[in-house]
Simulated scan of single mutants.
Amino acid sequence: MISIDGLKKNYGNFTALDNINLELLNGEFIAILGPSGCGKTTLLRLLAGFMKPTEGTITIDNELAASSNKLVPPEKRNISMVFQSFALWPHMTVEEHIRFPLKHHRFGKTKGKEEQAIKVVEALEMVGLSHLKDRYPAELSGGQKQRVALARAIVSKPSLLLMDEPLSALDAELRMEMRREIGTIHRKLGTTIIYVTHDQGEALAMADRIVVMNDGKIEQIGTPESIYNAPQSVFVSTFVGKSNLIKGEWVGENRFIPANFPSVSWQDIGISKEIKAQNLYPVRPEQWKLGEAEQNQMTGIVQFAQFQGNEIHYSIQSGEETINVYASVFEKRFLPGDTVSLKIYTGVEERVLLASSR
């Protein structure tokens, strides 16, 4: 288990990390998600042992790994890293790259050449590169290079695998393929993975838990489902997936009246106190149910309607707000200029029916 307690990192007068507290369980896949400059790479570098924290501690398997007074360097930690840039050596073949940690990694060092060969074959098979073992990096595609970097990182079977934006240099199709590869490898090895990304899709698809960061602080920690369905702050609701922040007024704890529609009332579906305090009601684009304009309902005028295969993406002007709506192609289609009512799927059964129709 890894425990991070009161972690702080300053660069001069700039605070890159501020009071980070986090526990990671053995075998867990954790995604550190946030925009550029939020501190996620600094956190990864501290976990790797590249530098000391200004304050706080990092404990790995009940042993102090880092504090303001102590630092266990990377070579003395049972970790591996996968970088965005692949970090491959041009003069070494695929096989030589993967064999390298077995010769030099303190925890994964394997003396016997036969045992090394077995482990290299296993790693090559795991990433599907057995047929390319004699090639050099210049002869490989981007996806193949990333597989080499991944195989090199896992061949020594580290207790912790750190991944820093590993798929950002790949095109969309390759990213999807590598997500599946990394997920499969994680299930096979059971290694703890800390995966830094700014891509919410990667985090939602791959992680057991997501740590959402902003301005050097943790905004929220939770499963992908809880992060998406129950954001605790305005930042999380808009950064992780799109969210329409409807202005209005909370009446008591459980009733919201949207601005300009005094006869409309929405119930609380788990909105956080922080968001309520700002008199906002976050609604995901897929939570809306469009219909013909009705009295005593929130209404708007369709500005744009874009066909997206299984969905229609609408932009709807309601007062001063532009609302994004994702509707199923099996529902009634509306055209620009149409006035529509905007209701919310609030019940669990309604949401299940909506999901099944898509």
Rank of each mutant, 00 (worst) to 15 (best):
Y195M: 08
Q306C: 03
I60Q: 12
I154S: 00
I275W: 09
N310Y: 15
E75I: 13
Q306H: 07
L204H: 04
I271V: 04
T223M: 09
E28D: 09
G56F: 08
E294T: 15
Q267L: 10
D171C: 02
L64T: 08
I227K: 01
H104F: 07
D164V: 15
A277Q: 15
M176Y: 10
A151S: 03
N296K: 07
Q317I: 10
E63R: 15
N254Y: 14
N244S: 05
F107I: 12
E311L: 09
V196S: 01
F235P: 05
S36Y: 11
L47Q: 09
P90G: 01
G300S: 08
Y136W: 04
L33G: 00
R135G: 00
E292F: 14
R351K: 05
S318K: 03
L124V: 06
T339P: 12
I98E: 01
L245Q: 12
G347L: 15
P262A: 02
V94D: 06
E125D: 13
I58W: 14
Q295D: 15
G248A: 01
L46H: 02
K242F: 09
T57N: 11
W89M: 06
I227L: 00
A277Y: 12
E253V: 13
E311A: 06
S68F: 09
A123L: 13
W89T: 03
F83H: 13
P258K: 06
Q317V: 11
A16Q: 11
L335I: 09
I98F: 03
L160C: 08
E55A: 12
M176N: 12
A138L: 08
R106K: 10
N324R: 09
W266T: 03
I227N: 01
T191E: 01
S233W: 07
M178E: 00
N13D: 12
Q278E: 11
I154L: 06
S130L: 15
H198L: 01
K188W: 15
R135F: 01
L204M: 09
G37F: 14
Q232N: 03
S272D: 03
L43A: 03
A230H: 07
V283C: 00
L33W: 03
F83W: 10
E122F: 13
Q200Y: 09
N13E: 15
P285V: 00
T41V: 08
G222D: 01
K109I: 04
N254K: 13
K109Q: 15
N310V: 09
A169W: 13
N26Y: 05
R175G: 00
I312D: 01
F107G: 14
Y228D: 00
I275N: 04
E286T: 01
G37W: 12
G270F: 06
R187S: 11
A277K: 07
G222P: 01
N69P: 05
S265T: 14
